[in-house]
Design a protein around this nucleic acid. Structure first.
Lengths: 194, 194, 194, 194
DNA sequence: CATGAATGAGAGTTCATTCAT
DNA sequence: GATGAATGAACTCTCATTCAT
């Protein structure tokens, strides 16, 4: 693929991302993408032959970005407690961010592709977050910052809570305060008793 | 509306329920419903003029049923701890039940109707569950079964966890064991320290 | 199917016949038929979901007609020789008739559907013509009109010739005289030597 | 045209031949050819600007080959009877050969191009075969091998039969035995009465 | 009320053809 | 010459919705 093609593909993926963020997955048509990109009908098919394949590419891109985000964040923080706070703050942004988020599209995509490798995708994310938190909790345990009996299960619990909040913000009303309250609640559960 | 009409409407709603349970919300067409009900195209439009209005009716029906379920269950249990266990058991069924559940359809429906009153629906459910748990925890506190500092927040936390599990089972792999583990985790958090 | 539907289906089949006679089979699109019938895109799909199924219906109709033609002709002729002449005359019309004939469409259709039951169709026609001629030759033998050693093989031979002429008129130039000459040739082959 | 170009054109024609032999004429697209040849879309257009012009080139090539075939065969045979048998044997191969043959493509091409000079092509072939047979029959007459009253008409008749058989094998079921039988029938018609 | 034929808008998809590189 | 991305026309097919019966 020529350099120009690579650029164009990238342009399509980025433009499509906006479309998916706005409309979710299921109702996005190739026509929507064509119009958003202002290219010809046939032109899009050169690069992607369905919204599925296009969305998969969008997700790939997305994961790369988020990986980077995590790393960057982690480098500048100091204590485990700080890292956790940072993580929660990031999650809060994710939870509240409706306009720019692929979450709904991703949910819809996952609902559709029950059998295929799509599940793996969410699983991976969950696993990554869970592992990250587990390590953090363990590290915090050893520094005395936290007092967590079963870091693995606590991490899991946190992931469930985060996922629940994320969903509920798309299906109902979750205020910023509610998220803050919940994070405080989670923190209290892991801080050492005085 | 004549008696016959009422019957027919009921029949349509019940049949449509199966369709929504199978296909979710977004991809269900009026045609799907017409075929599942084996009625005429025009006939369906007499009762419902869109999948939205039809699904709303399906949901109304559903809520009535689930209310009844809870009451029934509650009557036969004894201690607050029993009730909670019962509640968790019921939730587990909901979480794992893929075939017969409207959850995906409901999520999809909620995703679509960001602005409208649809959100209220999920909010109501969440509020109901949250209140129920709160009362339960308080009651348990007073009997000494539980030792919960802030029943409201703990109830909220549980609701988030449940919602997270429900979602993750649709988008990824949640095993029965993982649910059990999590319930044990939640219980340990509210039992009085020895 | 209502009476009106039957009428409409019939109308479509008859109109489509003209289209196939003009354009052959392969290049006929559903759009062509829709335009020829002056009905809506979706309207055609109520009755036929592909040019294949439509053409099959056209052919069914056609066979009914041609059967009738043969009978009618046969009833008014007297000697076997007359019948044969009549048959040849009819065949000549078929061979030369380009505008109104489904032959090309049928060939194209058969070429495409090598495996399916389409072949049977041509086979049937060939078999029918062959049997008809065989009987005629035998009958002529017994009246002394003809002197044919092997009626079956002679009949077969005639069928091949007819098919060859039919084809060659579509792919090259076969003049009326060439057909007449050939028919004379065939007749000379079966008349008793003086 | 450079030497390289000539080679490439030849390569395209030969590759396209296979495509036409497989798919007939009408459904072959420029894209099919491009893919079969593994060249660029634009590259093909340098040499041919339509499937028509490409197919015409394929046919030209084909005729050269078949001419050669006939000559070669003729040189090694001895009696006129032998030559005829050889000719029939060759024709039988043509009739039965489905995979590697351009016959269907040629028919389709001729059907389409009713007006243009394409018909001449089939006419030429027919004329060639007819002349060839006529000469053969005359030669056989003079050696006493055959006893044919009107060689021209008999030759014509044979050509029609051959064409009929060729077609019927593509549209219906013609067994090898049926061809053999017919050839025996034709031979009996021209052998001198004992 | 109920039916189901009919319409027409719109999505998906494929290719012939062009053209900048 | 050669490439292959790009365009846009054309075709297939599906449904929401209407309406005469």
């Amino acid at each position: 693929m020529s350099d120009k093609s690579v650029q164009k593909k990238k342009y399509i993926v980025e433009t499509a991302r906006k479309v998916f963020a706005t409309k979710g997955f299921k109702t996005v048509t190739m026509k929507d993408v064509v119009e958003a990109c202002d290219i010809s009908r046939g032109g899009l098919y050169i690069y992607f032959d369905s919204t599925e394949s296009l969305f998969e590419e969008v997700l790939k891109n997305e994961l790369l970005k988020s990986d980077t985000d995590v790393e960057t964040g982690a480098e500048t923080a100091i204590t485990n407690s700080d890292i956790l706070t940072l993580f929660f703050r990031q999650q809060k942004k994710d939870i509240l961010n409706n306009r720019d988020s692929l979450i709904i599209a991703m949910y819809e995509y996952c609902f559709m592709t029950k059998t295929t490798g799509a599940k793996t995708l969410m699983d991976k994310e969950v696993y990554a977050a869970s592992s990250f938190l587990e390590k953090l909790l363990k590290a915090g345990n050893s520094t005395g910052e936290f007092d967590v009996e079963d870091p693995k299960k606590t991490a899991r619990n946190m992931v469930y809570v985060l996922e629940g909040l994320k969903l509920l913000n798309r299906t109902g009303d979750i205020s910023e305060k509610m998220i803050d309250d919940e994070f405080v609640f989670l923190l209290q559960g892991i801080l050492p008793a005085k």
